[in-house]
Design a protein around this nucleic acid. Structure first.
Lengths: 167, 167
DNA sequence: TTTGAAATTCATTCATC
DNA sequence: GATGAATGAATTTCAAA
């Protein structure tokens, strides 16, 4: 497998520290990063490239403030698709993913088939999304809206702790 | 308000294009960015700083592949807190946010009080999270687990379109 | 793999527009 | 506000260990 979505990648302590720093601030200079983790800049550069090549790091993204973009109201919308055929699921996913209100899409098991995370200017915008946009789709059988009061993402996801590193 | 979580920030076309690029790749060189959007490097540098200063850009993060970190199984766990007092909500939020399995937390209205996004090695890890960890907390009244088959985040969130930009 | 030093590219400042 | 030229920093390469 080549850098795509693959299996678990073994990371040593240096990789893990670098990964932690890049999740906190992806734009730290390589010099700073090297100083922080205690290696030469050329070494940290090589490790960062390795993390990217192995697919551990998928990319570097600016995190935006949704309220600053005029999207102060967030919601998670649980959606049930009937029938939940591959055709219907894939069509809905493609459609909902590219709506401007959508900021994230979870395809799930359970009560709903989708959890759609949206960000809109106000509650009117939310209501309009639900009753104007979603109801356009015949495969949408049920919708349940939860307003998101707060959303926090984990700053730095850690690799799972292995009891005995192989070798 | 100073850069914190504030009101909508007015952005012109140049800001919007820069914001789009930084969401796609936060580590493009300023020179590249400037060339892409058609201005001098000193200009794009000034704009990028402005976006940061105004709080539109909250930071720059490396996006990791959860499966590569040994966390191939994701779930969204809907949790109901009883009684849903401020004390209980805040205590639970603080506790769940710092668990290693947690990658995101939504505080919501609706059927549940929390949607907790977790990433674990396998279904055993998921089951253990639910029956060992969550049930430790007396305020957790109900739990409903949805396995996440797929999670896609919107690449670049756009500012809401204003009909008539104020001057 | 890691390193330090050389070579190259980039960020940043600031006088000018 | 935007620009470009000058300067100071950083990235990147690579031969050596």
């Amino acid at each position: 497998m080549f850098g795509g979505k693959g299996r678990t990648v073994e990371l040593d302590e240096l990789d893990r520290r670098i990964l932690r720093e890049l999740q906190k601030d992806a734009r730290r200079t390589n010099r700073d990063l090297a100083a922080e983790v205690g290696v030469a800049p050329s070494t940290s550069l090589e490790r960062v490239r390795g993390l990217r090549r192995k697919g551990v790091v998928r990319g570097y993204r600016a995190e935006v403030d949704l309220a600053a973009l005029g999207r102060a109201v967030q919601a998670m919308i649980a959606i049930r698709i009937r029938p939940p055929s591959r055709r219907n699921i894939e069509a809905f996913r493609a459609w909902v993913s590219q709506l401007p209100e959508t900021v994230g899409v979870f395809v799930t098991s359970g009560r709903q088939d989708f959890l759609v995370h949206v960000a809109v200017p106000d509650t009117d915008g939310l209501y309009a999304f639900v009753i104007d946009r979603l109801t356009q789709r015949p495969e949408v059988a049920d919708v349940e809206t939860s307003v998101v009061y707060e959303h926090r993402r984990t700053v730095a996801v850690e690799p799972v702790r292995r009891p005995h590193p192989d070798r």
